[in-house]
Simulated scan of single mutants.
Amino acid sequence: LACRKNDSKISVPILRNVFFLGLLGAVLGRTLFYAGLEHTSPAFASALANLIPSITVILAVLCRMEKLQISKRSSQAKILGTIVAFAGATLMILYKGIALISLHNHHSHQSANSSKVFLDKDSIKGSLMLGVSYISLSAFFILQTITIKMYPAPITLTSLTCLSGTILSTIMTAILDHKASSWKLSWNITLLAPIYSGVVIFGITVYLQTLAIRQKGPVFMTAFRPLATVIVAITGLFLLGDALYFGGVIGAMMIILGLYATLWGKQREKAEKLSEQTMSVEGTEIKQEK
């Protein structure tokens, strides 16, 4: 209904933002993520992804979307919540401890070495790629917030963003990879993976993120990012037979506490703004009466 009532027209600034959304989200964000994942591991990439809320907070403050006043409890809660959630997610990856829940009596060698520390050149290069990818995704969320205010049509904006990302990714791939075999798709995971990525990640996910950002802002939306590490741990328990370790349980509790602290800080900040607005209105009315 909101989209049907949208009277905004697509202008040059909006098309410019759509171009950069495709560049930040698809080309830099996802491509560098896959490249970094190739040189590291899913566990390491999952832990490092919890930098996104912290980076988003920093970018939001620099863009004046968020205010951090250290003297206020709301700002202290947001900072503390971000740090605690990141620490909890990192703990889940780097520390296992004893196995509390296990559906199998033995684990694969790959699972046992999932918290391995990377020191070789390829892993350092992969870590840098992941870092740039997460910075790009954080910038993507900030620009997405700006653009949805300029053009309040989430479905259309999502479609344009996906189209921009597709065109830019195709051009980049054609330049970097000339092999025809790289473009060949078979009736297996090589076909399922792109379809899933296009429909779920770039279609449904980007649309839902746009709605959340439009209502609550980029910091609120990215505050839920650390929950992905918890979901990965639970999914691995039931689908892959990975054990649930003591470190994972403690880390999950820290993530939940950090998430709660961040959301509490956002809610308190909203209440403080409403209180200030109410006092301002009352002060204006008193002056008019005098």
Rank of each mutant, 00 (worst) to 15 (best):
R4Y: 01
V12T: 10
P13S: 07
F20N: 02
G22Q: 04
L23K: 04
T31C: 09
G36A: 01
E38G: 05
N50G: 15
L51W: 02
L51C: 03
L59Y: 14
C63E: 08
K67C: 09
S74R: 02
S74A: 06
S75T: 03
K78L: 02
M92T: 00
Y95S: 13
I98M: 05
H104R: 14
N105L: 09
S108Q: 08
S114F: 01
D122S: 15
S127A: 07
I135P: 05
S136W: 07
F140I: 01
M150P: 03
M150K: 13
P154Y: 06
L157S: 08
T161V: 07
C162V: 11
C162I: 10
I167G: 14
A180L: 12
A180K: 11
S181C: 06
W187G: 03
N188I: 00
N188L: 00
T190K: 00
I195E: 06
V199D: 09
V199N: 14
V200H: 00
T205Y: 05
R214T: 08
F220K: 00
M221K: 10
T222S: 14
T222D: 13
A223W: 03
R225Q: 15
A228M: 14
I234E: 02
I234L: 06
G236N: 03
L240D: 13
L244K: 04
L244F: 13
G247S: 03
V249T: 13
I250A: 15
I255K: 14
I255A: 14
I255D: 14
Y260Q: 07
Y260P: 04
R268N: 08
L274G: 08
S275H: 11
S280M: 05
Q288F: 07
K290Q: 12
